[in-house]
Amino acid sequence: MKIGIPRALFFYHYYPLWESFFKDLGQEVVLSNPTNKQILKNGIEVAVDDACLPVKLFHGHVRDIAGRADVIFIPRIISIEPKKYICPKFLGLPDMIKHNLPDLPPVMDMTLNLYNTKLNILEHFFEIGKYLNKTRLEVMKAYYVSHKKFSSYKKHLRKYSVTPYEILTQKNIKTIKPDFTVLLLGHPYNLYDDFISMNLIKKLQKRNVKIITYEMLNEKKIVRGTKKLTKDMFWTLGNNILGCAYYLLENRKIDGIIHVASFGCGPDSLVGELLEHKVIRDYKIPFLYLTLDEHSGEAGFNTRLEAFIDILEGRKFSENNISSHG
């Protein structure tokens, strides 16, 4: 069977796992094309107005893949780690898609909810297996293989400090002798989509900036970072963003922080404020808040980015260099 996976949202998190799992079960995986103007337009056209930009874009990717797949994989993601949730829009995503796009091929919308225990991931895959007429043993085997692959993929990101961007888009962004190290925060589906992020990663690379993302930190470090919060952050991605920022700031390993948020994102509006008002005020480090929206005004985006890099340069080369904690 041809399983269609939209190149959006949790593709940027789970793709290595999904790909390996489906292939091991003898299925063919087809991906939607990288985001382009038409895909975004197709998404905005059918999505509800209140949806955030990434969800609108997801609609476009579903439309892009619809004609080329026998079934579309849109898992109902509720939680991807114990005691944390994912933004509620993911919970309703399969319904939203089926409602807004009535003429789709069948949708595989198996629930993924690890809120109570990580072991529930097996239930998720058993359900998928059932749909594909696979025995529990076959599913267990396929899961074992793909879980191992996924773990080593995540280890690879940490060990060699690569972003999922380089692996998923197969582009090399290694900077040799970088001038600055910048922590790039945001949801993976905003950061690693060149169209949506207006080539942010490439632009930073061009200015000889080394990028750190939360995928390069192991869980323990992120947890240690989140200890600085007065209260638990209940969204996984927000938690990763804040934990990563606190950890790296405490260990003084970065020259600046860029936070990328998409317009209309509920969790981001909160996480962004927390970052800007708490973290940055306490640590006095250059901070840039970039908002992405469907109008893609690149002039303002570039001006901000250029000015931000000027700040980094100013701090580094100025005669009256002030310490990053001054």
């Binding site: 250059p286 000027d310 100025s318 009256n320 002030i322 001054g326």
Partner: peptide, 8 residues
């Protein structure tokens, strides 16, 4: 601050 831009 000290003649350099620190924030904007």
């Amino acid at each position: 601050k000290n003649k350099i831009v620190v924030d904007f």
